[in-house]
Design a protein around this nucleic acid. Sequence first.
DNA 1: CGCGACGTTGATTTGCCTCAACGATTGTGG
DNA 2: CCACAATCGTTGAGGCAAATCAACGTCGCG
Lengths: 189, 189
Amino acid sequence: MYDSLIAHIRKFVPLSEEEENLLTTSLRHKKVRKKEFLLKEGQLCSANHFVLKGCFRMYFIQENGVEQIIQFAIENWWITDYQSLDWQQPSHFYIQAIEPSEIALFDQSIIPDLCDRIPKLDRYFRLIVQRAFAASQQNLLYIYTFSGEERYHHFNRAFPEFIQRVPQYMIASYLGFTPEFVSKIKGRR
Amino acid sequence: MYDSLIAHIRKFVPLSEEEENLLTTSLRHKKVRKKEFLLKEGQLCSANHFVLKGCFRMYFIQENGVEQIIQFAIENWWITDYQSLDWQQPSHFYIQAIEPSEIALFDQSIIPDLCDRIPKLDRYFRLIVQRAFAASQQNLLYIYTFSGEERYHHFNRAFPEFIQRVPQYMIASYLGFTPEFVSKIKGRR
DNA sequence: CGCGACGTTGATTTGCCTCAACGATTGTGG
DNA sequence: CCACAATCGTTGAGGCAAATCAACGTCGCG
C-alpha cells in the first residue's frame, strides 16, 4: 500500500526492515474524493501529505477573490503548509484534490517521536524540503526573468503531463495570469 | 566566536558540551570584505553559510543584464544555494557581502559525517530549511497578491532595518521592480 | 434539454518599464 | 584638500505587456 513511499524514502536514506514496519504502522492511508480538501484557510495544518495517487493543488484566495495556485502535487510529491505546521498558526492556504486521489498521511503529532526512533527520517525530510526550497528559488528566477508567454511555453515543455491532467484556468492561476491571457498566447502562431 | 550560532541551534535542538566542541572545531570562520563573493554564477556551491555579523544578498543576472535579488541575509540567517549544493550543479546565483561581514562556514563535504555524529543536527537543518521554504511560499503570496506599491510599503513595515542598511536600488531589485519606480512610489503622498 | 463550467476573442485600460536628463552624494587620485 | 568621476536617487514623457470587462461558443452533465 505504501510501496511508492518506501521506495521514495530509500532513494535518499537506508531503511531497515523493522524501520519500514514501524513506519508503515505509523502512517495513515486516506482516499480523497475529487474537490475534497486536505486543508482550508483558517485551519491548523496538522499533517504532511504524500501523494500515492492522484493530483492536488495548493492555493490561496486573494483580496479580490481570485484563486492563486502556488503548488501542484502529483504522485510521489509531498504537499503541506509548513508555515502552519511549524508555527501552529492558522493557514492562509487551501489544499484540494483535483482528481480522485490517495495519500499517505504523516500526522505532525507523531513526527518528533518517529524521527527519534528512525533518526534517518530527519535527514530524509531535510533533503526533501531542501529540494522543495531549491525549486521555489528557481521558480522565483523564472517569475522575474521571463514574460508570461515565455513562462507558459517553458511550463509546457517542462511539465507536459500537467497540461493533460489539469484544467487550463489552473495553469493560468499557477503561472500568475488570467485564463484569457492563456487563450491569447495559444492563439498566436 | 560562534556563540550566536550555538545559541541559534539550541533554540531548536538540545546540544551536549561534547557536541558543541565537535561542532566548533568542524566549522570554519571567515571574514568577508564588502562586495566580496561567497559564490558566483557557474561555480559549485560547496558550503552552507551562517551570518555571524554583516549582511549579504543572493541574486542572479537576467538575460538582459539586470541583477535580480532573491534573498537577503543578516545576522543569524543561513544563506546558500541548495540547488547547487544538493545536486552538485553549477550555480545560477551570486552571493555577495553588502557590508564588511563575518560568517561561519559549514563545508558540504563534512556535513554527512557531522550529522552522523550529531544526529540532532539533521533535525536542526530540517527545521531551518522548512522555515526558509515557508517564508518563500509566503513571499510568493505577496508577489501575486499585491501591487508593487503595496509590496514596497509592506516591506518597509516588516523589515525597517533593511531600509537603513541596504541601498534603495537593492530593495527595488528584491521587490522585482526598477529603482525609478521606488522613487515614484515615495513621491506619492 | 438547459444550465453551469470552461474556453475564446476583441476593445479598452493600467501598472510598471524604458529611456533620458538632471541633482546629490560619495569616493578617489592628483 | 580640491577636482572630477562614479554612484545613487529623482523626475518626466512615452510605450508595452497583461489585466479588465464584456460578449459569445462549446462541451459535459444532472
